[in-house]
Structures are given as structure tokens and as C-alpha cells.
């Protein structure tokens, strides 16, 4: 259609997008080469922010924690989401609409509210989870927040709880788009349900799995509210300091804007690396299982 209206139509979007979406990205690269504080006093600092970052043990701890929380919240969730989507895709399932809707409930809730509930559920002294753990003979109460792995499990549980249903629906949509004939012919060839899942469903879902993994990686590197609510400094031994919490504390507690901008750039590089790896791995797995 006539393009004369094109520019006026995209203008409002483009102005906002350039000012609040693109400019901060460019500006952030600039700031990362400066010593910059809230008063705006700036001094060129070369690549010092970056060399200091690589020597900052807190950065490496935050990287480790973020990666651990990401892995703990991504892979079990992915497996469960595929499983539930596999159940829900069945045409003969009763109450389809009900199950789908209820699965999405956790996703709409306030992240701070959820952190409060899970903190209570995982509590050392009065938490239900510890009450359940104690039913196992000989097992002590776990102080989830104090341990490194246990605090990661607690945070990963909150993330999984919130996103499992959402990702299940994404997988379900892709599974429903797979033509029935593929299953019918696999069934005629004598494939078991498990074989059908591995050889028919998974290869067809490779793009969706890549998509979910990439979105999950971007989300995983943004984990902030949960650890901040467990302990603003990331825990007594920084056991749950995440990259975004580290960035926030450098910028808004220590007033080191330049340094924080460098952290932001490091996070972006990590996202790009992991996204690329994800892309190639899923492509490879999918092409192997389909051959």
C-alpha cells in the first residue's frame, strides 16, 4: 500500500524507541570508559573499568551464582514444560481449557509478593518445606538462604514456579502445530509413545526450544528482585549475589556509574555468547535426532 503514511505512522514509536531504547545502549558504552558519579563529574578512564571488572572477585562470584541459578531454573523447567505440554496436547484430555488457564496463574503474580511467600515457605524455623524435610528420618532442617547451592535452589524454584506454565503453553502451541500424520505413521511403524516424543516431537520443536532457551537466558541474567529480597548484599558470603544485583549495587549504592555500565556490557556479551551457543547446540541435537 501507499507508503506516504509510513513515516508518520512509525514516528511516535521511533522517537520513543530511539530516545529510551537505543540511546541508553550507545550512552552506556560511552559511560563505561569513564569514572562517572551521580553528580555527572566524569574522568576518562580508558579500559580500566573493564580490567578492574575482570579482577573483581565479586564479579566472578556473581557470574558463578547467576550461571548456577540459570541452570537450576532452566533445565528442570524445560523438561517439565515439555512433559506437561505433551500431556496437554492430547485431544481427548478433559478440561483442556481449565488446565491451560490455571497453569498461567503463577505467571501473572507480583514478583515481590511471590518472594515473600517463598521466603516463608523455605524458612528455616517455620517453613513448610522444612517441616516436610523433617519427616524424613535423620535429616536436619536446612537453612536455605545461608547455603550456596540451597539458596540457588530456593531462587530457581521461584523462577520455575513463575515460568513453568508459560513455557508449557509455548511448547503446547508448537506441538499442536505438528501434523497428526507424523504421529500416525510413526505409530504404524510401531514407535512407542516415548519414541514418538523423541523422534517426532522434539525435532519439530527445535526452533521453539531455541527460542525458550534464549528468552530464558536473557531472563536468567536479569534475576534481581528475588536475591535482593533475600539479602540486599547478596548474602553473608555473597552466596546469591547475581550479576544484575551486582550492577544495581555498584550503580545505586556505591555510585559507580561507569563501573556499573561496564558490568552491563559484560552481561550483554554473555547473553550474546550463550544465545549463539544455544542456537548451534539445539540445531545440532535436532538434526541428529531427526536423521
Amino acid at each position: 500500500m501507499n507508503g506516504r503514511w509510513g513515516y508518520p505512522a512509525i514516528a511516535p514509536f521511533f522517537v520513543i524507541f530511539l530516545i529510551f531504547g537505543v540511546a541508553p545502549v550507545v550512552y552506556s558504552v560511552y559511560i563505561s570508559f569513564y569514572k562517572w558519579d551521580p553528580l555527572g563529574v566524569s574522568e576518562f578512564n580508558g579500559i580500566n573499568n573493564f580490567t578492574f571488572l575482570l579482577q573483581d572477585s565479586d564479579f566472578w562470584i556473581a557470574l558463578r551464582n547467576t550461571f548456577s541459578i540459570w541452570a537450576l531454573s532452566t533445565f528442570p523447567q524445560l523438561a517439565m514444560a515439555l512433559g506437561f505440554a505433551w500431556i496437554l496436547r492430547n485431544r481427548r484430555l478433559k478440561g483442556k481449557s481449565f488446565w491451560r488457564t490455571i497453569l498461567l496463574v503463577p505467571n501473572i503474580t507480583s514478583v515481590i509478593a511471590i518472594t515473600i511467600v517463598f521466603q516463608q515457605l523455605f524458612g528455616r524455623d517455620y517453613g513448610i518445606i522444612n517441616s516436610l524435610i523433617q519427616l524424613i528420618p535423620g535429616v536436619e532442617r536446612i537453612d536455605f538462604v545461608e547455603g550456596t547451592l540451597s539458596s540457588h535452589i530456593q531462587i530457581a524454584t521461584m523462577i520455575t514456579w513463575r515460568w513453568l506454565g508459560y513455557n508449557t503453553l509455548i511448547f503446547l502451541a508448537s506441538m499442536l502445530a505438528i501434523p497428526d500424520e507424523l504421529y500416525e505413521s510413526a505409530s504404524v511403524d510401531g514407535a512407542s509413545r516415548w519414541q514418538q516424543f523423541v523422534f517426532v516431537t522434539l525435532p519439530q520443536l527445535k526452533n521453539t526450544i531455541t527460542f525458550v532457551l534464549i528468552v530464558g537466558t536473557i531472563g536468567g541474567l536479569q534475576v534481581f528482585a528475588e536475591p535482593q529480597q533475600l539479602g540486599a548484599d547478596g548474602g553473608s558470603t555473597k552466596q546469591f549475589l547475581t550479576l544484575t544485583l551486582f550492577l544495581y549495587n555498584q550503580a545505586f549504592l556505591n555510585n559507580k556509574y561507569g563501573y556499573a555500565a561496564a558490568v552491563g556490557i559484560a552481561i550483554t556479551i554473555i547473553v550474546l555468547i550463550i544465545s549463539t551457543i544455544n542456537f548451534f547446540i539445539t540445531r545440532r541435537i535436532a538434526s541428529e535426532s531427526s536423521s
Binding site: P24, Y27, L221, Q222, L243, G264, I267
Partner: peptide, 20 residues
């Protein structure tokens, strides 16, 4: 260009956005 920027994590812009 829009799709490419969607891949960038939002923390990247937080500090400059606050300054702006």
C-alpha cells in the same frame, strides 16, 4: 534493527536511562 535490539538485555541501559 528492532529485532536486533530485542536481543539486548534491559540492564544494559539502566544506568544511562537513569542519568537521562
Amino acid at each position: 534493527f528492532i529485532i536486533a535490539t530485542m536481543m539486548l538485555p534491559s540492564q544494559l541501559g539502566v544506568v544511562p536511562l537513569f542519568i537521562m
